[in-house]
């Protein structure tokens, strides 16, 4: 049963090739095989959203996929949001708006929100709340996260006003 499968996957622009068991979750593959520990593992059954990554550009829960399924696909994790030592506008906004306390859920929020803030220049509060409905934060009560989303959108789409 320990049959190994080859996974060749592009993560944050780098191509990785590993031999893995079919049962290895994508979340564990990212953390243990690739050493990219920015992706956090919370509930491991698709409720908390901490392990959210971009899979071919769309946010998915990496604990609800097997690594073998990522063969030939493209993934972005929180490490890929900005070059080393820099922050993505979304990360800056989270920092400035106090949208995190312990930070455990933050990578998941950021990866869920990246495509959302890029494609929603003027979202309503309701739309923001729906966008983050699949991510749990136990510290902030979400209000500051919503403020951070608005701030990030200001930075990305309305930089003259920022």
């Amino acid at each position: 049963m320990s049959e190994l499968h080859t996974v060749r996957v592009t993560v944050n622009g780098t191509v990785y090739e590993r031999q893995v068991e079919a049962r290895m979750l994508l979340s564990d593959f990212i953390r243990h095989e690739l050493g990219l520990t920015g992706t956090h593992v919370g509930c491991e059954h698709g409720v908390c959203g901490a392990c959210t990554v971009l899979f071919d550009g769309e946010p998915v829960r990496s604990c609800l996929m097997f690594a073998v399924q990522a063969d030939g696909h493209e993934i972005m994790t929180v490490e890929g949001l900005a070059p080393e030592g820099e922050m993505h506008p979304l990360q800056e906004a989270f920092h400035e708006a106090h949208a995190l306390q312990c930070g455990f859920c933050t990578p998941g929020f950021l990866m869920t929100l990246k495509p959302f803030v890029e494609t929603h220049p003027n979202p309503t509060d309701e739309e923001i709340r729906k966008a983050i409905s699949g991510n749990l934060c136990r510290c902030t009560g979400y209000q500051h996260i919503i403020e951070a989303v608005k701030l990030a959108i200001k930075k990305i789409h309305h930089s003259d006003a920022a």
Partner: peptide, 9 residues
């Protein structure tokens, strides 16, 4: 149906 991440898969 569930959340955006779930609907993507």
């Amino acid at each position: 149906i569930a959340h955006p991440q779930i609907r993507n898969r």
